[in-house]
């Protein structure tokens, strides 16, 4: 399927999802759906670096928070429309990704992973001490009651996130099938052999970090309007870091479908579970699933299904 056709199909599916949500007409569906979509973007973004090149980013929450706080910053300075904020947040997060990558991507993957953990704490400390965006007290971002045509504001946020999800999936799939995707895979397989074959590994890693970070930032941009009150501990929450790793790992890391499957399964489970049980138990389940999957099913749900299909065809 060409990229163009694939985009059309996703748009059609997106339109159906939106129509179905409107049909149900319950605000809760939009609130829950928004969270699931946000996780699809985060998981897809994480996988562009983690799954394709094999470099683990523990700092997803930092990139997400960069996006969220970009919005808070502009909200206090001069409110801009959300789609524009999404673009700005993407640029800011992408640049931070490049900066950090430039410092640490020449080293072994383990150092990069540790540095991303550090980045999250450094940025959080900066935000806590930065009064203009609310500091440790947090910041109120009042969302308008309604928007023209769509009505309730949450419908609008949902639609923005839906479009972002479609863009993220199209980008991930396009990368996978392009020369860039080949280059990423050589880095994951064997970096020295990649260099010997003429692959400019550092440049490709920086590209991956930038794209991945940018999408995480974009996913965070509408968040202040969604939550209404943003404090550092919620924007930098460990839940984002864990989910954006767990979802691709559980879904499968080698193609764009894996993070999508993982995010849908884990995201919906968590939405249901949060209603019935506490959020801590909820996160415990994610952690346990992550460990069980990396130990038992290295290629995730997608890998399990592929194995099953292959076994049947033989």
């Amino acid at each position: 399927m060409s990229t163009f056709k694939f985009s059309l199909v996703l748009l059609a599916v997106g339109a159906l999802v939106f129509a179905a949500a409107r049909y149900v007409g319950n605000d809760y569906v939009f609130f829950a759906g928004y969270t699931v979509l946000q996780f699809i973007v985060l998981a897809t973004a994480w996988n562009i670096l983690g799954g394709y090149t094999g470099y683990v980013n523990f700092g997803s929450a930092a990139f997400f928070a960069v996006g969220a706080y970009t919005t808070v910053f502009f909200h206090n300075l001069y409110p801009l429309p959300i789609p524009l904020l999404v673009v700005i947040a993407g640029i800011v997060a992408g640049v931070i990704g490049i900066g950090m990558g430039y410092l640490t991507l020449r080293l072994r993957g383990a150092f990069f992973a540790i540095a991303t953990l550090a980045l999250a704490v450094v940025l959080q400390t900066l935000v806590v001490n930065w009064d203009f965006v609310g500091g440790s007290r947090g910041a109120y971002v009042i969302r308008p009651e309604s928007v023209p045509i769509l009505g309730n504001y949450i419908n609008y946020l949902f639609l923005v996130m839906l479009l972002l999800t479609i863009i993220a999936l199209v980008v991930a799939r396009t990368i996978e099938r392009s020369q860039l995707g080949y280059g990423f895979a050589t880095i994951r397989d064997d970096e020295q052999a990649a260099e010997a074959s003429g692959v400019p590994t550092l440049k490709l890693k920086l590209i991956a970090t930038a794209i991945s970070g940018a999408f995480m930032g974009m996913a965070g941009a509408p968040f202040p309007y969604y939550i209404g009150y943003l404090e550092p501990s919620s924007a930098f929450g460990l839940a984002y870091a864990v989910n954006s790793i767990a979802m691709p790992m559980i879904g499968g890391t080698t193609s764009w479908i894996g993070p999508l499957v993982g995010a849908l399964v884990l995201g919906i489970t968590q939405q249901v579970a949060t209603v019935t049980i506490s959020s801590a138990v909820n996160l415990l389940i994610v952690g346990v699933l992550l460990v069980v999957f990396v130990v038992v099913a290295p290629n995730g749900i997608v890998g399990l299904i592929q194995d099953r299909l292959r076994a049947r065809s033989k």
Binding site: A113, I245, A246, T253, L284, V291
Partner: peptide, 25 residues
């Protein structure tokens, strides 16, 4: 299996997380 880079890291990250959440619970 030579998979410590990606999955090994995720494994320890999971352990970190499980321990912390269990203690919170």
């Amino acid at each position: 299996r030579g998979q410590e880079a990606l999955r090994g890291l995720a494994f320890f990250f999971g352990l970190l997380f499980i321990t912390e959440v269990l203690l919170i619970l």
